[in-house]
Design a protein around this nucleic acid. Structure first.
Lengths: 118, 118
DNA sequence: AGTAATAGTTACTTTTGGGTAACAAAGGAA
DNA sequence: TTCCTTTGTTACCCAAAAGTAACTATTACT
């Protein structure tokens, strides 16, 4: 395998990695939920209140997927009525710097677009 | 405005910033095009060849949006037949570290998922 | 018995994103 | 004159994502 092939391979790998990352983060609500949980454990109804515009269906669907992807943990508490605690896993916390990078760029972008048509 | 309000404001700002960033990057092809242009200017037909699976319609639609968002520049060359050069703007290049962060996490994630069910 | 709270699920509809393939303009080549 | 190349656009179709609203289970409270 020559140098050029190596380059192509590493590029393909990167493309796959980006696809994976976007697959996990790409849903409309995933990052919002991450952000909401960043400040600590929360119950289902807390998150529902916390995130503007999300529906119960989308919240539970997103939470389920995020659990499968090991970004969050789900613990049923033995209360009456039952409550469910969601929390970022250590693994999930590793996404925080990525989200912060996104947010950082987003701020710049907003400034840029605002300044454009003055 | 007390301390809590300030916190809420800054959180809202972050949510908006993330929405902006995801809006720009969220399309199926945007990041692929960024990656393709990362290695230098390219013509329309070059990119079309470069990116596996993209259609002409989606390429021109994506390029148009990316131009509006000032991520790329578009220059028509006076050749017969005309050719069009696309290039990352300086501003667009600022997205590279963000994409790299995504890719980095994506690699880790792939490892994690692969290791899970051994 | 009837109502409320928590954490969902289900059925149905709408919206969005993306795919395919045919067409368009502009000029050069055969 | 008809075809080819390049860079698109347009019309039509399909599938996935997301929204809405009604419904479920459990237990406690009144």
């Amino acid at each position: 395998m020559d140098k050029k092939d190596v380059q192509i391979r590493s590029c393909e790998k990167k493309v796959m990695a980006i696809n994976d990352a976007m697959y996990v983060l790409g849903g409309k609500w995933t990052i919002h939920i991450m952000t909401s949980l960043y400040y600590g454990k929360k119950r289902y109804s807390d998150i529902l209140e916390d995130i503007d515009g999300i529906s119960g269906k989308m919240l539970s669907r997103s939470l389920k997927e995020m659990e499968i992807n090991m970004l969050i943990s789900r613990v049923v508490k033995d209360t009456r009525p039952i409550t469910v605690q969601y929390e970022l896993t250590e693994y999930g916390k590793k996404l925080i710097p990525v989200i912060d990078k996104l947010a950082e760029w987003g701020m710049e972008h907003r400034k840029k677009l605002a300044g454009r048509d003055e």
